[in-house]
Computed example of a mutant assay.
Amino acid sequence: MKKLIIVFAVFLSCAMNAQNQRFVYEYKFISDSTAKNEVKTERMYLDVSKKGSKFYSEVKYIADSIKEDRLKKGFRDLTGINFNFIPFVVEKSYPDYKNFFFISLSLDRFKVSEERPQTWKIMTEKEKIGEFNAQKATLDFAGRKWNAWFVPDIPIQDGPYKFHGLPGMIVKIEDQTNSHSFTLKEIKKLSEDWASESEKKSFSNIIPVNTAQYKKQFVENRNDPTKGLRQMFASGRKLMMVDESGKPLEQQTILRMREKEGKEQNAKNNNLLELDLLK
């Protein structure tokens, strides 16, 4: 906590000088509503620069860095890299706060423009969040009711995930079912702007869509886990998989395995952050 206090003080002294900052949030979530005791945790980065922000997983950042380093050295072996991370990236531009959500569905990568307004209701209630004197605000967004705490002393109208628009940085936000929460844990100074060319390459060849178009794609992929594989096979591309004896699997066997796996994943992933995707 002392580290947070010190870094916070440094941040306040230089915030208006447009120095690059990293806000580290702890994301806690329950992906299966039938197993509420199974709370998952992941550290998330909100990198802020003069022109905008980028929100993404710390584990993703580490995995991408290791992968890029190996590929630069000519190594194609990616074993040992942890690819089990929150997959999405959210970028916001300043000062208009245009909001873009980057995600992969099956074999496609999408850039989703977020048009839904965030109509906050600022409350009089105040609370101590860590070392911050924060004020409460509420919001209905993406099928959930959210309670947020923001700090006017941090003059940035931003926050984790897609959340923004309050008169100060959001240091904590949670939905009313306690299924999803983001809490600020640390603030760091960055030596470089987050929007480096190497990071931009990770989302090349993307398909731009709006929220309605993305929801359609999401539902189709969720209802048909084999959609991407069938499209790949239809285009003539091949996927090599073997059984326990080392014998290559036929396409139909691979499709059955993927369908079974997808349905099992969907059954456990029923408590999405954006709950209205399932409605």
Score class of each variant (00 low, 15 high):
residue 170 I to F: 10
residue 267 A to V: 14
residue 70 R to S: 13
residue 140 D to G: 04
residue 271 N to A: 08
residue 60 K to L: 06
residue 3 K to V: 11
residue 121 K to D: 14
residue 20 N to L: 06
residue 13 S to K: 02
residue 251 Q to G: 02
residue 232 M to R: 06
residue 113 S to D: 03
residue 64 D to K: 07
residue 259 E to Y: 06
residue 271 N to K: 07
residue 237 R to F: 13
residue 147 N to F: 05
residue 259 E to T: 06
residue 260 K to W: 05
residue 202 S to G: 01
residue 32 D to Q: 06
residue 20 N to V: 08
residue 78 L to R: 09
residue 268 K to P: 02
residue 32 D to S: 05
residue 83 F to D: 06
residue 151 V to N: 13
residue 274 E to M: 06
residue 160 P to L: 13
residue 242 V to A: 03
residue 70 R to D: 14
residue 235 S to L: 08
residue 95 P to C: 15
residue 261 E to L: 07
residue 259 E to K: 10
residue 48 V to W: 07
residue 21 Q to V: 05
residue 62 I to W: 04
residue 71 L to N: 14
residue 9 A to C: 11
residue 160 P to A: 13
residue 33 S to W: 03
residue 91 E to R: 14
residue 96 D to V: 15
residue 52 G to P: 02
residue 33 S to F: 05
residue 112 V to H: 06
residue 15 A to T: 08
residue 182 F to W: 04
residue 158 D to F: 03
residue 4 L to R: 03
residue 241 M to T: 15
residue 230 R to L: 03
residue 135 Q to N: 10
residue 27 Y to C: 06
residue 213 Q to E: 14
residue 134 A to H: 09
residue 110 F to R: 03
residue 275 L to T: 01
residue 203 F to W: 07
residue 137 A to C: 05
residue 216 K to I: 13
residue 166 L to T: 12
residue 250 E to P: 03
residue 154 I to A: 04
residue 3 K to Y: 10
residue 235 S to W: 05
residue 256 R to N: 11
residue 125 E to P: 01
residue 237 R to V: 13
residue 256 R to W: 11
residue 260 K to I: 06
residue 8 F to I: 06
residue 270 N to I: 03
residue 52 G to H: 02
residue 263 K to R: 09
residue 101 F to N: 05
residue 146 W to C: 02
residue 203 F to R: 11
residue 241 M to L: 15
